[in-house]
């Protein structure tokens, strides 16, 4: 079935493949630049910032796809009709000019191309890279979810109130508002760590892939659950500090940890914590396995 590598026909296929990549780049360069600009300068919307992990995720997704290139070429060319449908749908999204849908056209068209060229097998091969792209595509998902995070916000507010109360401060909690020394701190959805949760899950997916544990279902579930718990606890601590700073009039410290680089530093430190956690989990499960055998 193999055709000689250097036949003119094969060269033509290669040229076509390269041109497809080129046209894709021309189609999405302005959009990707717009996304990155919004992530760096925080000038599009709060929802857009929820996807800032795409700065690492999109290059990583391309890297993963690139690693798969040999397997990709070896796959038989079996177009799947769903691919054509997705390509058409992606095109319609793209032409709508409505930001939400133009953004969604990227994962739609990429998935469409995988299915169109290599069928289900191609989709499976690039599934992880496609997932990384989809989860980094700015959509209104955080906006849709935000109304339902009230219980989490309320839980965090009450826990913060409890901790500060134990520290001997006079605190009242009403709903998602923490009243402290006549000042109010509101635990908004954003402050409730929804973004941190999104980012943590995204980073742990990358870590799982990187350390090659994505195949072990058990570690995968444990690690993702641990990520969620770490993210919520770290947020309670952060909100406690914020309320403490605000309530005691330390405005500079408050601003630094709230919107300044202190907040980013804090998030980065929590994310770094995930690495030893995963290491420990893999080691532990390996030793368990050896013990059993």
């Amino acid at each position: 079935m193999q055709t000689p590598q250097n036949s003119p026909k094969n060269n033509f296929v290669q040229i076509l493949d390269l041109s497809i990549l080129g046209v894709l780049l021309l189609l999405y360069a302005p959009i990707l630049l717009h996304w990155v600009d919004g992530w760096l300068h925080k000038n599009i919307s709060t929802e857009h910032e929820y996807f800032s992990h795409g700065i690492i995720g999109l290059p990583f997704a391309s890297y993963v796809a690139w690693l798969n290139r040999k397997k990709w070429h070896r796959l038989p060319n079996k177009p799947h009709l769903l691919g054509g449908l997705l390509l058409f749908l992606g095109g319609v999204f793209y032409l709508s000019g409505v930001a939400e849908w133009v953004n969604l056209s990227l994962p739609t068209i990429l998935t469409g191309l995988c299915l169109w060229f290599k069928g289900i097998a191609g989709f499976k091969l690039q599934g992880f890279a496609l997932l990384l792209v989809l989860l980094a595509t700015p959509t209104a998902a955080p906006y849709i979810v935000a109304p339902y995070t009230f219980p989490l916000q309320s839980f965090i507010a009450h826990t913060v109130g409890f901790i500060l109360d134990q520290l001997g401060m006079h605190v009242t909690v009403y709903g998602i508002n923490i009243y402290i020394n006549g000042r109010i701190v509101e635990v908004a959805p954003y402050c409730a760590g929804l973004k941190m949760l999104f980012t943590s899950i995204y980073v742990s997916l990358i870590l799982l892939y990187w350390t090659d544990t994505l195949s072990s279902r058990q570690i995968k579930i444990y690690f993702l659950s641990a990520t969620i718990i770490v993210s919520i606890i770290s947020n309670i601590i952060r909100n406690t500090l914020l309320s403490y700073f605000h309530g005691t009039g330390q405005e500079q410290a408050f601003a630094w940890l709230h919107a300044g680089w202190g907040g980013d530093l804090y998030s980065a430190s929590v994310l770094l914590l995930l690495l030893p956690l995963l290491n420990w989990m893999s080691d532990y499960s390996r030793s368990q396995e050896l013990g059993v055998k």
Binding site: V13, I20, P79, L113, F117
Partner: peptide
């Protein structure tokens, strides 16, 4: 033949999108 055809369809579609949309 099929390999070429799927690619040509894809590239023509994308070029059309580029021309109209971008």
């Amino acid at each position: 033949h099929q390999q070429l055809l799927t690619r040509i369809i894809a590239i023509l579609g994308l070029i059309l999108l580029l021309g109209v949309g971008t």
